[in-house]
Write a protein that binds this DNA or RNA. Structure first.
Lengths: 189, 189
DNA sequence: CGCGCTTTTTGCCAAATGGCAACTGACGGC
DNA sequence: GCCGTCAGTTGCCATTTGGCAAAAAGCGCG
């Protein structure tokens, strides 16, 4: 729980009573490898804070290929990207890449904290914005680089992730085929 | 000014008095083609709302090549991406691709509106988050696609932009060379 | 240890893209 | 009208990446 508090306190100040209130809404959840936290076609009814493990966000393109759009590592929030406009079904899956432990909030509870705690809603938007900015800052430069450079960048950005992620997921995230990524790895050694 | 009001009202409700207050802080600005609205190395001191024209966000990579990271079209806000954490210098330029007309706020005024108007800060964060989500949703799928598909997607996403943007900017945005993009265009016709 | 299963690596060749330089076409100044 | 400039196009060839299939390596399990 402390990890969650530390995360939240980056975005505003909360007193002990508020922290307790937040804690009272959180439920621990363990996910096995490959289990889904959210599924495409459903409206996200919960918000998760990842304590341990790796999640990925993926979808299927129009050729039916599975594309990994993003990885989520420890001590970050995850929910439907469309979390701001409520009630929209996600087009993406959130899936456990490894065994995961999370703290989960019912979306209803999560949103209702805004009624009780002044500034909660703003904090949530700050978190979202910061999170998105980081993602964007990482993805944007990738477009203009070749596959080897993209892989190197990934190693820099997520040093603790590379060896926990199957090659195929990483390849689709980087926008190369699995075989190409395998060759890239070889050349780098 | 009505365009700005319409934009703002997407993110919360504001009464006439509040709109007037906002309007009183806005200054019109005309930018000639290629003029900079923001420059790398400076702290952004203003926030702009684009009434007419096209802006781009660009930076220089470690080979000294200029990369266009993004385009901004009419009726959107622009400021330093790091706008949330104040006081950081930008690493990017915001430049006029065509002649532009903007409404400009001193960042100080923009931020101080939060003191006068309850909910302003949350609205700003909502705008930021929505804006970033849209960008991310557009850029993410591009990684996994070939250049032709990326170009087609761009045409769908920004139908009014393609013919107002120099080929070289668009090419670097799409992550291909200018010559390749030129060939892609030819093949599509 | 040996067996199936999945993941990763390789080989082979085709297709896409880059790099460079020359060519073309539009436009404004004179 | 001529010339310089700049954006866009094209040709030629090298390099990168994709597609496919087979081989190799890792891994759990009896």
């Amino acid at each position: 729980m402390d990890e969650l508090f530390a995360y939240l306190l980056q975005f505003g100040s909360l007193n002990q009573r508020q922290l307790d209130l937040i804690a009272s809404k959180a439920t621990p959840l363990a996910l096995g490898k490959d289990a889904y936290f959210l599924e495409a076609g459903h409206v996200a009814r919960r918000v998760g804070f990842l304590l341990e493990g790796v999640l990925r966000i993926c979808y299927y393109d129009n050729k039916g290929d599975e594309i990994t759009r993003n990885f989520i590592d420890e001590h970050h929030l995850t929910t439907n990207l469309r979390g701001l406009e409520d009630g929209l079904a996600s087009s993406e899956y959130v899936q456990a890449v490894t065994e995961c432990r999370l703290l989960v909030f019912a979306k209803r509870d999560w949103d209702e904290l805004a009624h009780t705690m002044v500034g909660w809603s703003e904090m949530v938007h700050k978190m979202t914005a910061k999170h998105l900015m980081e993602k964007l800052a990482r993805i944007s430069p990738m477009m203009a680089q070749d596959a080897t450079t993209r892989y190197r960048e990934f190693l820099n950005n997520y040093p603790r992730l590379a060896n926990r992620i199957p090659l195929s997921y990483l390849a689709s995230f980087l926008g190369v085929t699995q075989s190409s990524l395998s060759r890239i790895r070889k050349n780098i050694r």
